[in-house]
Amino acid sequence: MRPPLDSLLIRNVESLTMSRTRWNILIVVLLIAGLAWVWVNRLPAGDVSAAGALPPAPAVGHPAPDFTLTTAAGETFKLSELRGTPVVLNFWATWCPPCRAELPELQAASQRLAGQVAIVGVNQAETPAEVQAFAEKLGLSFTIPLDQSADVSRLYRVRSLPTTFFIDRSGIIRQMQIGPVTEATLAQSMKTIYP
């Protein structure tokens, strides 16, 4: 009687339970092959920054896509002109309750960090009159670019409001938050771009 295939297989696997020497040889072989594979795939220092290869995109680690809009105060706003200053780039609308909840936090931060961090609140697709009345009611004094055609919202793939991007001095997005910031999460995310 031949033993069933299954038990033969198991016995063969069991017989693979090798002697100590063979295990040690296996470990040494893996160590050598392993280090070789790690070595050939190393990244030369400086290569990454030199490549700077990531294209502008609304994602962590990527350069923030540039845009130009007119602000509620009637001035021209260009994101790249803020290079050298950390930027908190927020997208909001007056009809969005969580935005209304967080705007006072952004206002407080803009006063606390005046001249050190730029707080920018892009309004999504509303009329200048609406936005101005609303900003006056809440006493908002930070820059509010008007994204009337929602082109910039599309550029930043903003799917839900509010969404906030934290951009460092060199224009790289370091953190993004979907949903409202609180004072605590604002402080936490701010750490990635400032001081």
Partner: peptide, 26 residues
């Protein structure tokens, strides 16, 4: 100086686990 962290840690973990398997088997 340029070694990928996940590779280094992955290899170290694999070697330790392999050593443990050897102990267990013998």
């Amino acid at each position: 100086g340029g070694l990928r962290l996940a590779q280094v840690v992955g290899l170290a973990v694999a070697l330790i686990a392999l050593w443990g398997l050897g102990r267990l088997a013998s």
